[in-house]
Design a protein around this nucleic acid. Structure first.
Lengths: 277, 277
DNA sequence: TTGACAAGTGACCAATTAGTCATTAGTATA
DNA sequence: TATACTAATGACTAATTGGTCACTTGTCAA
């Protein structure tokens, strides 16, 4: 488990410097100080490494946003906090942002295209949730357009973080974009993005959270977890999936236990979806 | 000259399907129906092909936008026409868009990073020109932010064209984005992007149009041009660069002659810059 | 000290790569 | 027809690639 993380970190450095295809397994193992054989003990192929990385880093990003959006912030700061956390993430993880937001070669591999689209759809859902909380039914016709605008702001301003390291005033940026978002939300009248269109583009990731995939995910996390409250909680939840015995309140509490560790936020997020909490 | 074009076209197809690094010279020559040796008669290396392609396709795009922006359209349609032409281009050249707007591995090669940044800066200038025409000094504090928003809208909505071929109503889209742009321009009060910041990010492409580079560009175009009015015009302009004898009016007319052919728009654009017309 | 088993090694392999160059095909002039 | 030229070929090379596997090392309990 730790070896895997080491490889992913060093690989991320190299990918962000040279790109995925131009980086050889040899280079990765050299930077890790391990042998080629050791690499193939952790990952079956080079592609599998990439898939794991996409999962690992995009999960972090998507979950972080969702947490801000669903956190109990007051309405007048939520937009500012939303943007602040996004650009904080871009700043902190500029290497992974470079790889996963820009190296779209990734998208030529079908499996990854679906994975990345799915994470993108998750992010869209979070944004829509935020807009619904903020504006209720004021913008029922234009909410998807506003969502596209927000994603556009993110992409455009993210370049400042990804391709240079100029010191920037995050607070000012967040305020500026929050204002723009509010203005757009309040004044837009001509919609373009319809619900159907969103569903069309998000098709490949419509899959529900299946029992199987969830169980697999849990086992994966259990394997790297020593005896602890978190482990117990996760095991209890695992049985809960097949056979619902405890009340919603208990389940929610167990999930909360898990979410405390940042590396388990994603499982928590998926569990919440499954149990509809 | 024609062979080069054939190679660039087929290479574009392959790059958009598989990415640059995953496409071999062999594959390119096979799709062209030529031998490997023939490829290396047109391009010294695989990298040189990529550079030529960036120049060829981004030039087209940037010049097209500039033409719309500087065309004599009335103020109330210019924004709509701007967006319409942009997304028309995305639709028509979705393959090159996929490669050059998304495969940012390109950016790990320094030479290309500078080239692409330079074209991006050209586009930014066109957008700023448009905003200045539309709003005069109404938005002197926020024009760079509005420019960033416009680029964000482009990036966000472009995905609809690049990653799917859903039939879309271009007019509706253009209207919708024009409205959003106008709203942002009129209401934004908190600026973030300052002139200095723009200059910082655009540093590598600040170079003026030098005599040498312009002469080289002209020779390049002359080499593939039979006897014609265009050829005569271009030759006259070539001498004009070293020794200004004709009036501005004549020079402008000569440039206009050249611009009639779409493949020469870029030379025309650079000449205009050089002669400050 | 022994033995058993997992963790780790790196020489090795077949396949593929970008790029070269001696050779040939095609064409225009004399 | 002979000559001189360029355009085009594809077998070749040297290097690199992702991936394997017979082997060594380290770490336990007995």
């Amino acid at each position: 488990m730790l070896k895997k993380q080491l490889i992913m970190e060093k690989a991320l450095e190299l990918f962000s410097e040279q790109g995925f295809e131009s980086t050889s397994v040899q280079q990765i193992t050299e930077r890790c100080g391990i042998s080629k054989g050791a690499f193939y003990l952790s990952f079956k192929t080079k592609d599998e490494l990439l898939v794991s990385m996409v999962e690992y880093y995009l999960q972090q990003f998507v979950t972080e946003i969702d947490q801000v959006v669903r956190g109990s912030l007051s309405k007048d700061v939520i937009l500012v906090e939303f943007y602040k956390s996004i650009f904080q993430a871009f700043k902190k993880h500029s290497a992974s942002a470079r790889v996963f937001f820009n190296e779209k070669v990734l998208l030529t591999k079908k499996e990854l295209f679906q994975k990345i689209s799915a994470y993108d759809a998750e992010m869209s859902k979070s944004i829509i949730y935020m807009l619904e909380q903020l504006y209720r039914d004021e913008l029922h016709k234009t909410k998807y357009d506003v969502m596209y605008c927000i994603k556009g702001f993110m992409k455009s301003y993210a370049e400042l973080f990804i391709f240079s390291d100029i010191p920037l005033d995050l607070d000012q940026l967040a305020k500026s974009l929050a204002e723009k978002t509010d203005i757009i939300a309040r004044h837009t009248t001509i919609p373009f993005i319809t619900e159907d269109l969103v569903q069309l583009t998000a098709k490949p990731c419509n899959e529900e959270v299946t029992k199987e995939s969830l169980l697999e995910l849990i086992d994966q996390h259990l394997s790297g977890l020593e005896e602890s409250i978190e482990r117990d909680s996760l095991e209890l939840l695992k049985f809960q999936i097949d056979d619902l015995t405890y009340s919603k309140a208990i389940v929610k509490g167990l999930i909360e236990n898990i979410r405390l560790r940042p590396e388990h936020r994603w499982v928590a997020y998926m569990l919440k979806k499954f149990f509809k909490i």
